[in-house]
Simulated assay, not measured.
Amino acid sequence: MGIQTGNYLTPVRLNTRSVRARRTSTLSLTSGSITPVSFDAEDWDNAAMFSATSSNISLPVSGLWGFMAFGAFASNGTGLRRLLVDVNSSGAYPTINSRPAVSGDNTHITVSGSHVATAGDALNLFSHQTSGGALNLLAGAYFTAWLIES
């Protein structure tokens, strides 16, 4: 069975440009502060979109990009946990996911979306928590992006 044409995916529309950056250590977060999440490892990067210890993914070509991020916050039953995606350090945070804290277990959050990019746009991941004290974003947080159509 081949890929259909028309409004379906075709080989021309399929692209392999993608990246997944990951944190290998915890990140201490101050309550109430929006904190950039820096990454120190990559699982793959076939388009040179990430450099170690960076907090952004640089999109090399114009087009429609998908993205997804995951983070786990240490157990604490107070407040909210958030992951926020920003484009070009605008501070607007067009994509946010928020969860109430989980008592007795880590709070897991994923955030996903898409962005119509101009070549050179940068996606940045930020975290936020309102526990009333310092709280860790746990090791293993990741941020991935892939080209859907150029």
Rank of each mutant, 00 (worst) to 15 (best):
G2M: 00
I3S: 01
Q4V: 03
Q4P: 00
N7S: 11
N7L: 10
L9H: 03
P11C: 07
P11A: 08
P11F: 08
R13N: 10
L14D: 03
R17C: 04
S18F: 01
S18L: 02
R20K: 14
A21N: 04
R22P: 01
R23N: 06
R23M: 14
T24D: 08
T24H: 07
S25L: 13
S28M: 06
T30D: 11
T30I: 14
S31T: 15
G32L: 04
G32P: 02
S33D: 15
S33L: 14
I34L: 05
P36N: 08
V37N: 01
V37G: 09
F39T: 09
A41H: 03
A41S: 14
D43A: 14
W44Y: 15
N46I: 14
S51L: 02
A52W: 02
A52G: 07
S54D: 15
S54E: 13
S55H: 13
N56S: 10
N56F: 10
I57F: 05
I57V: 12
S58M: 13
V61M: 05
L64Y: 07
W65L: 06
G66P: 01
G66V: 04
F67H: 11
A69C: 09
G71S: 08
F73P: 08
A74W: 02
A74G: 14
A74E: 15
A74V: 11
S75L: 10
S75Y: 11
N76M: 07
G77K: 08
T78D: 15
T78Q: 09
T78V: 15
G79N: 10
G79S: 10
R81Y: 05
R81E: 13
R82C: 14
L83F: 13
L83M: 14
L84D: 14
V85P: 08
V85D: 05
V87E: 01
V87D: 01
N88L: 11
N88T: 10
S90V: 00
G91D: 05
G91S: 12
P94S: 07
P94I: 03
I96H: 08
N97P: 00
S98T: 14
R99E: 12
R99I: 08
P100N: 14
V102Y: 03
S103N: 07
S103L: 09
S103D: 08
G104A: 03
D105K: 03
N106C: 05
H108W: 13
H108Y: 12
I109A: 06
I109V: 15
I109S: 12
T110H: 12
A117F: 03
T118L: 06
A119G: 11
G120M: 07
G120E: 01
G120F: 05
A122F: 00
A122M: 15
L123K: 12
L123C: 05
L125Q: 08
L125K: 02
S127V: 13
S127Q: 13
T130D: 14
T130W: 05
T130H: 00
T130A: 13
G132C: 07
G133D: 15
G133F: 11
G133L: 04
L135S: 06
L137Y: 09
L137A: 13
A139N: 11
G140A: 10
F143M: 04
T144Y: 00
T144G: 13
A145L: 10
A145K: 01
A145H: 09
W146D: 00
E149Q: 09
S150M: 02
